[in-house]
Design a protein around this nucleic acid. Structure first.
Length: 484
RNA sequence: GGCCCGUUGGUCAAGCGGUUAAGACACCGGCCUCUCACGCCGGUAACGCGAGUUCGAUUCUCGCACGGGUCACCA
């Protein structure tokens, strides 16, 4: 069997759309599960859309996700160049080959004539389609035009009757009447190929066996079939994948702010979680497990699990998966990720590792962190309603009593003994002597120290983290507030 | 509008002629607990509509509706 070769062929537009990344992922998985090659080809023929540094975005994103390519612009390979703009010279001769075979023809229609045609169609309420004016020019006419230096394009000669059947691995056979097909342009006036043409030629020249691409190309797929036939080339396996939507009506777009990989990373998601989640968009694994590393995806991925209908991007589900990845992180690893976020709001000298340990199980996205720990540096004004706790039957009055009991205990602890174990022991002595539930002491303490309804860690941990001086002053402030 | 494609709970989705129609996320309830989470246990919730084919349709066929895509010298 032929070696599997797949390709990812993005245009450098400056950012990596999630849908594109998913296409790259699937493409990569197909190559790797078949011990094949994954090729990167940059399709930069649209100079107007060219963005500085955009190629680096592609490189960096793929690398970060672990989608390493075997051949590409930077690493080279046997079928280069891998940047389409550097391949420009080679297309015209393929188009001319088609002209000789009678599968394509020179067209000298200028913009004015075409515009007139379009206007006419529009006036009659018809869909414009090139009228094949130049399709049957005589050899003499063509030569005369060529000699006169008239600009021309090369168009593909579509069959006038019959139908074409195109096979897609997912959708099966798609048949279209040839009369629906326009004599599409292969080579533009400037001698450059159109996307459709360049794509077919490049894929063939690069020995691509499987093509994964967006569903928007499905309608033009039959034209590809005809092109391959005209050349007598083998048609690669095509797999068209559905779009990723923001909701039922709208595609996930740049302006939604979470359409690109970079956006997601900036929003506090882990690379592995993003890769895992996008694999699940429009694809279902065989079993019930849905957490997969890239390695596992290579084993698990199967074209049969791909969906034929669009998938809606669900940030909540991504969050849940991200949380699972965060929980699975080794503590040192989590600390590496979390520390910069903690430091956004916590500047004081404290036990960062301890904070991380408290945070890891309750962090869904990294960007949630600063807000969760901001009270460590600064106790904001808070509502004494926080001292109410229905479940433990605690109210402001009981809290006041508790804080007054706690204060001397804290004051009595030596700075040298200021650690969680010691604070814990002392507070539990208090609890025992008062014969009350743990909550009656610990909850008011937690509220007084944090001024928040929920915190990572309880009163004991927070006391330890903010130190003796702040612990005492915050308890005093609580007493003051509750005494009003 | 023509052509192509699709349609299972709120979301992702399994299913491939006979099922109590999986699972995950979200949601609700309980347990745990110094808060909120985590974790564990349990719960609510779905085959777009109408005809066929068949002993039997979520599954096959055809219409309809709805949604998406595509109709460039853009990729």
């Amino acid at each position: 069997m032929k070696k599997v070769r797949t390709r990812f062929a993005p245009s450098p537009t400056g950012y990596m759309h999630i849908g594109n990344l998913r296409t790259a992922l699937f493409t990569y998985l197909i190559a790797k599960q078949n011990d094949g090659d994954f090729i990167l080809r940059i399709e930069d023929t649209d100079r107007e859309r060219y963005v500085e540094g955009a190629v680096d975005v592609i490189y960096n994103t793929l690398k970060q996700c672990g989608l390493n390519w075997d051949e590409g612009p930077d690493v080279g390979g046997p079928v280069g160049p891998y940047v389409q703009s550097e391949r420009m010279g080679m297309f015209k001769k393929y188009a001319e080959e088609l002209v000789e075979k009678g599968e394509a023809y020179y067209c000298f229609c200028d913009k004015e004539r075409l515009d007139g045609l379009k206007a006419e169609c529009e006036a009659n309420g018809k869909t414009y389609s090139y009228d094949r004016h130049c399709r049957d020019l005589s050899k003499e006419e063509i030569q005369a035009n060529l000699d006169a230096g008239k600009p021309y394009v090369i168009r593909q000669k579509m069959p006038l009757e019959g139908s074409v059947t195109f096979h897609d691995e997912l959708y099966g056979d798609i048949t279209v009447e040839c009369t629906e097909l326009e004599d599409q342009i292969l080579i533009k006036t400037d001698g450059m190929p159109t996307y459709n043409f360049a794509n077919v030629v490049d894929d063939h020249l690069m020995g691509i066996t499987h093509v994964v691409r967006g569903n928007e190309y499905l309608a033009s797929a039959p034209k590809y079939e005809l092109l391959y036939k005209a050349f007598g080339w083998e048609v690669p396996t095509y797999i068209h994948v559905e779009h990723i939507m923001k909701d039922k009506q709208h595609k996930l777009s740049k302006r939604d702010g979470d359409a690109s990989f970079e956006d997601l990373i900036n929003k506090g998601y882990l690379t592995e979680a993003v890769v895992n989640y996008i694999a699940l968009l429009g694809w279902a694994p065989k079993g019930e497990e849905e957490i997969f590393s890239l390695e596992e995806l290579i084993k698990e991925f199967d074209i049969k699990g791909l969906s034929k209908s669009p998938a809606i991007f669900d940030p909540l589900k991504l969050k849940a998966i991200n949380a699972k990845y965060i929980k699975a992180l080794a503590p040192e690893e989590f600390e590496k990720y979390a520390t910069p976020y903690i430091r956004q709001t916590v500047k004081r000298d404290t036990d960062i590792s301890r904070i991380c340990a408290l945070l890891q199980d309750r962090t869904e996205v990294l960007t949630d962190i600063p807000e969760k720990v901001d009270f460590l540096d600064e106790l904001r004004d808070y509502d004494t309603a926080l001292y109410f706790n229905k479940k433990n039957k605690i109210d402001e009055e009981k809290s006041l009593t508790a804080l007054k009991d706690i204060l001397p205990v804290m004051q009595g602890i030596d700075e040298a003994d200021w650690n969680e174990q010691y604070i814990h022991d002392k507070l539990f002595e208090l609890i025992a002597s008062k014969e009350v539930k743990n909550a009656l002491v610990l909850l008011p303490l937690r509220v007084a120290l944090s001024g928040k309804a929920s915190t990572p860690g309880g009163g004991i941990e927070i006391s330890y983290l903010i130190g003796k001086a702040d612990t005492i002053s915050r308890i005093e402030k609580g007493i003051e507030l509750l005494s009003k």
